Computed example of a mutant assay.
Amino acid sequence: MTSSDLYPVSRLAAVQEATAKAGLDALLLTPGPDLRYVTGYDAKPLERLTCLVVPASGEPYMMVPRLELPAAEASPASRLGLEFVAWDETDDPYAVAAKRLGQAARVGLADRMWAMSSLRFREVLPGAEQVLAGTVLRDLRTRKSPAEVAALREAGAAIDAVHRQVPGFLRAGRTEREVGRDIAEAILAAGHATVDFVIVASGPNGASPHHDVSDRVIQAGEPVVVDIGGQLHNGYCSDSTRTYCVGEPPADFAAYYEVLRQAQEAACAAVRPGVPCESIDAAARDVIAEAGYGEYFIHRTGHGIGIETHEEPYIVAGNAEPMRPGFAFSVEPGIYLPGRHGARIEDIVVCTEDGGERLNDTPRDLVIV
């Protein structure tokens, strides 16, 4: 799998077509996931403007600081036939872009564009309505190509390799931070370019879904929630959660963990084309609620994943969008008892033509170490 598979030349034309169809005069994509998705260029986010301009008609071009020109030309963006408009330190790149755009009435800004850039574009294009580029890119980004699914499958295998090592890191007397340090090293060793997050949540910290790590010492008999992920060199992300217990678990924990396992299984089994995204959430939530733990499941069941760890589609009540082949997302129900402990099980799942494929395959049963 090459960068041309993940970031095909045809994507730019598809984006330009979608821009025109959305009634926009241009998309303005600064460094971040939108720019990388369209071009493959993982540009540095700097105070100096780098911006891909995709007009609804006419030739796209990229504004780049002259000192960043070699990096842009060495990136996958060079395959797209783009004009690189290099600007010097005394130039105003916003004014240059505005002059080339002319009387633009509506422009789409990268969803992660810095406010300083957004406001400067507003100054130089005072008559242009600004909307999110995500409204144009959404349909393209949510439906993963076979190459993108392969990249996510590779990321899933890499993070699975780390989870298989976690039992060797966990033991009573170690701090969460010590365990987290070992996990972070393992994430890089498994082939990730970056460590995006490491959650090691022991005992009562397990009831905080987005706990990080702390100097808390792990005790015997405590559950530990381990949620980890990173980004591969190709830009695609991993994200997987497993729950462990250092010694025999408390009886009440073991009881609701089995409920959680069944809920996660039900949600994964519900994935197929045409079903509303919210029905996947309901499949997990109903199992948990029927067992009496509904108030302790305090977040959505899942989020999309690709070149961002969290992106659309979101698996949550109120999202009636039908599943389509190529949707890739997490299925991660959790149960959290404040002040006591918590548990979560998370896999990345891809909607296929006739069901769903899990991209993580480490055991989902409670792992006792």
Rank of each mutant, 00 (worst) to 15 (best):
S214V: 11
V349H: 07
L188D: 12
P93G: 08
Q262Y: 00
L359I: 07
C277H: 08
E154H: 01
V213N: 09
A128G: 03
L260W: 03
R216C: 05
H192A: 09
L80Y: 11
V9L: 11
E68N: 14
A14L: 10
L109Q: 10
R242C: 03
N319F: 10
H341N: 14
F327Q: 10
Y37W: 15
F197S: 13
F253K: 02
A317Q: 12
E353D: 14
T30P: 04
S10V: 15
A267P: 00
V179G: 03
D139L: 13
E265T: 04
D25G: 06
D34V: 09
E357K: 04
V316K: 14
L125W: 05
R79V: 14
Q264S: 00
E185P: 02
T2H: 07
P250G: 00
E123F: 02
I315G: 05
E178I: 03
V124D: 15
A22Y: 03
G221A: 01
V246W: 02
H310M: 12
L46D: 15
E308P: 10
G108Q: 12
H303K: 11
R106Q: 14
P209S: 08
R358K: 13
S238N: 09
D361S: 11
A150M: 08
L359V: 09
P146G: 04
G81R: 09
V246Q: 03
L260I: 01
R344I: 07
A161L: 02
G102M: 15
P249D: 05
A43K: 11
G102V: 12
M62N: 10
D286G: 04
R164E: 06
G168W: 00
A186Q: 04
H310K: 12
L132P: 01
L35H: 07
V166A: 02
T135A: 14
N234G: 06
R164T: 02
D215E: 15
A74G: 15
T135V: 15
P31F: 04
E311A: 11
K144R: 12
A147W: 00
S145D: 07
M116D: 12
L52K: 10
L260M: 03
G127R: 10
L188E: 13
A158S: 08
S3E: 15
G81Q: 12
R324E: 15
W87Q: 11
E178W: 01
P126V: 04
I199H: 13
Q262G: 02
E248L: 07
G134M: 14
G274A: 05
K21W: 05
L29P: 05
A86P: 00
G230C: 06
R261M: 02
T39Y: 06
E59P: 08
I159M: 05
T241G: 06
R272G: 05
R261L: 00
D196C: 01
P338A: 07
E148C: 05
E129R: 04
D227M: 11
E89Q: 11
A255E: 07
S214Q: 10
A97F: 06
S202F: 01
R138F: 08
A13I: 10
A291V: 01
